[in-house]
Design a protein around this nucleic acid. Structure first.
Lengths: 239, 239
DNA sequence: TTGAAAGTTTAGTGTAGTCTAATGTTGACG
DNA sequence: CGTCAACATTAGACTACACTAAACTTTCAA
């Protein structure tokens, strides 16, 4: 039984693994990941993405709808979750066992995740007591490729002072999507609620770590779905 | 301060790092490393080596005498020793901190050595107490790029009665490594030669201090590299 | 409804690495 | 001392990945 991740994932190049990981993050809620977004996150030119997209669809890791974007197949998703498991466990291991501080651990994990074996990752997990969450509060996928889906709350429903990670923007309206993007309110962003006026008045958000304020009315706040972020002494470094 | 290894070694590809490492090992006593030997050790075709040799000489990492072989430049040697330091410290860390057994660490270290940062390696070294030898008994180059040159003799070449410290097992073959380990023939062990049959016959070893005998054929004896121990003293026990 | 901006893909090039097949060089031995 | 086997190199092709420039779609707004 038991298609293991190793079985599912014969030999992917580091580059391919990176693409799968960002496609996973970009197509979080079942949507499409856009070429230009992938390019921006990997810091490559858009045509490089088009080229890779072609290769990845040929090997069955993603599905491509021209001019629309890409989605992971089941196989691609397994491979992506394997990388995310590696990344999060490496970050945890480096901070807890080797004294790394939270700010510098990301780059190290980013390189190591392509080189470690499943055995090493499992040994590290065991050494850490098989943790379920990384220090950001993000769930660590299991060796079998399962991940706990975060419970999302609307920004309109949380109390002042709560720290949040924006996870989804609950609209398809292009005008609103654009507006949110202009405000820097895109999935992945960290924020806190600094103020809320009574009688369904506007909510003031503070972006983390810049502290820049954003004011949104209740109608818009209802569209912003967030995950509550546990407070750590490490702050909110990048993932 | 002072030229660090990092300074000396901007960005080498994993492939280049592998070439430098095997060239180091093949040109141990100042000789030339032959194209075909490099090809055999890296499991690539000889023309691939010729191509790489061209690139490496252009970047000043090796010197090439056509139809003779190659030698490392000072810069190439520094880069090679940096990789060897990484490899040996990784092997040690994996065995001591994560429960790997000696037979299986090699492959893992082989991949990781290209991905770890100098900082991580130094942290691992510190966690291990800045060890001088790896699990095979090989000396670990310092962060500054110095390596202890050990004068080792093969067990097949020393005369009966000589007192020896086993320092190095000259094979990567897991089956043989396991066999030697089962026999108690691991680096650091003290032994004497109690008997040797003529005509390339087997050698009988006496372990110190237990006196337990071990019999090894000439082929295996050739793999056991030892340091001659002048007087019995302490300090060879554990690593 | 149309046209321009934004975004995507194609076309063509470059680099690092691999390979096989063909050619060149060296050195050992008859 | 010449020949031939062993070894090394060149020649030429292939893959994966990147890039720029140009062409093609889609979207949005006047």
């Amino acid at each position: 039984m038991h298609a293991t991740l190793r079985d599912a994932n014969p030999e992917l190049t580091p580059s391919v693994e990176d693409y799968l990981k960002v496609i996973y993050h970009l197509s979080n809620q079942g949507g499409f990941a856009a070429t230009s977004d992938i390019a921006a996150m990997l810091d490559v030119a858009p045509p490089s993405v088009s080229g890779m997209v072609k290769r990845l669809s040929e090997t069955g890791l993603i599905e491509h709808v021209p001019y629309r974007g890409v989605q992971l197949t089941a196989q691609g998703r397994r491979a992506a979750l394997r990388m995310i498991r590696r990344h999060r466990l490496l970050e945890l291991y480096l901070t807890q066992q080797l004294g790394y501080d939270w700010g510098s651990v990301h780059a190290e994990a980013e390189r190591l995740e392509h080189a470690v074996s499943d055995e090493l990752i499992d040994r590290m997990a065991r050494a850490l007591g098989d943790p379920q969450y990384d220090p950001h509060g993000d769930p660590i996928p299991t060796a079998a490729g399962e991940i706990e889906e975060a419970e999302l709350v609307s920004l309109a429903d949380v109390s002042v002072g709560t720290k949040l990670e924006l996870r989804q923007v609950g609209t398809q309206d292009p005008a609103r999507l654009r507006y949110f993007a202009e405000q820097g309110l895109t999935p992945g962003v960290l924020l806190t609620i600094t103020d809320r006026q009574p009688f369904n008045g506007p909510t003031t958000i503070g972006l983390v770590p810049s502290g820049d304020p954003r004011v949104v009315g209740r109608e818009l706040a209802l569209l912003l779905w967030c995950r509550e972020v546990p407070i750590t002494d490490h702050g909110y470094a990048s993932r």
